Amino acid sequence: MKNIAVIGSLNLDTVIEVPQMPKAGETLAGTSVTQIPGGKGANQAYAVGKLLGKVKMIGAVGDDAPGKVLVNNLKSVGVDVSGISEIEGGTTGQAFITVEDSGENSIIIIPGTNADVTKELIQKNEDVIQKADIIIMQLEIPLETVEYIKEMAIKLGKTVILDPAPAVRDLPDSFWTGIDYIKPNETELSILVGRPLEGIDAIQEGACSMLKKGVKNVLVTLGNEGCLFVAEGTEEYYPACKVEAVDTTAAGDCFTAAFALALSQGKTCGEAIVFGQKVASIAVTRKGAQTSIPSPEEIME
């Protein structure tokens, strides 16, 4: 099994359940509020760890109670947290997630110490990247840090997986050049290419435009419609596992983590996609981010 390094965000999620999303100017009564360990980077590292992968994480938390909760939760599933810095006087990142009865969600991120994941912090933990075979990143840490890590990883011959969320418009082609896999959902892909994408043909065109920017492989997750894989000369659709969604929070993170884990085990890209879909299909039937991630035994069942 190959080594995986996750570089990214750690957030304490405050999850608010509502009947439906409030409209502008509307006051709406929620049904519950809970706090759950989250952050796209931490979710992905936690998922790899819970699925028994070999994973280390680089990130930053504050010297506060939420930071300790997040780090200890990663430790509980075997994640190596030696690359997570505790910033004196810093405030750990937070996310406020509104989940409606249908399972759909909207998210507001407060970066906090995630903004402290700088080039200097990466340089202090360069050995983690050197020892890893697969690098997973997201866009909840500074973009210049993501690009710096990508360039370092490419020079070292690592496999680079980027979950481009939250999506950012008008990034230069140089940002994308050399990335092995990106995993946007259809909304994020639309933002990346700068135009609406309605229908599978338009989504395929959008994915192909990312190939022209230098990405080697594009995985577009389509929710309950499945996943579209696009590479040079290849387009393949993978239908979704049919389940009743309760909360889609962290479903994409589960997919990314499980996909990377399968690659680390020597699985083909297609096999890794199917495994990612299985893990994500279980996660959406449960509430929360890291609390929704299944164990290997549950996946086997």
Score class of each variant (00 low, 15 high):
156 L>Q: 13
162 L>K: 00
160 V>E: 01
252 G>E: 05
51 L>V: 10
223 G>D: 02
93 G>Y: 00
89 G>I: 06
265 Q>H: 10
184 P>S: 12
180 D>Y: 05
44 Q>T: 06
200 I>E: 15
10 L>I: 09
197 L>T: 02
135 I>Q: 09
71 V>F: 14
140 E>L: 01
290 Q>I: 14
262 A>C: 06
168 V>N: 08
143 L>G: 02
246 V>I: 07
104 E>M: 01
16 I>E: 10
58 I>S: 08
24 A>N: 10
144 E>C: 01
90 G>K: 11
226 G>P: 08
143 L>A: 14
138 Q>Y: 10
278 K>N: 06
109 I>M: 12
86 E>C: 12
168 V>E: 13
159 T>E: 15
215 V>I: 10
297 E>A: 14
91 T>C: 05
201 D>I: 05
241 C>A: 02
187 T>H: 11
165 A>V: 14
53 G>A: 04
160 V>W: 06
96 F>Q: 13
224 N>Y: 14
114 N>V: 04
51 L>D: 10
172 P>E: 09
257 A>S: 11
126 E>V: 15
258 A>Q: 04
136 I>V: 15
28 L>C: 09
256 T>F: 00
231 A>P: 07
95 A>N: 01
230 V>Q: 11
120 E>R: 12
119 K>M: 09
93 G>E: 04
289 A>D: 03
88 E>M: 07
74 L>Y: 12
187 T>R: 12
45 A>N: 12
206 G>K: 07
125 N>G: 03
264 S>H: 11
64 D>A: 04
252 G>H: 07
32 S>D: 11
59 G>Y: 09
165 A>M: 12
81 V>L: 03
81 V>F: 01
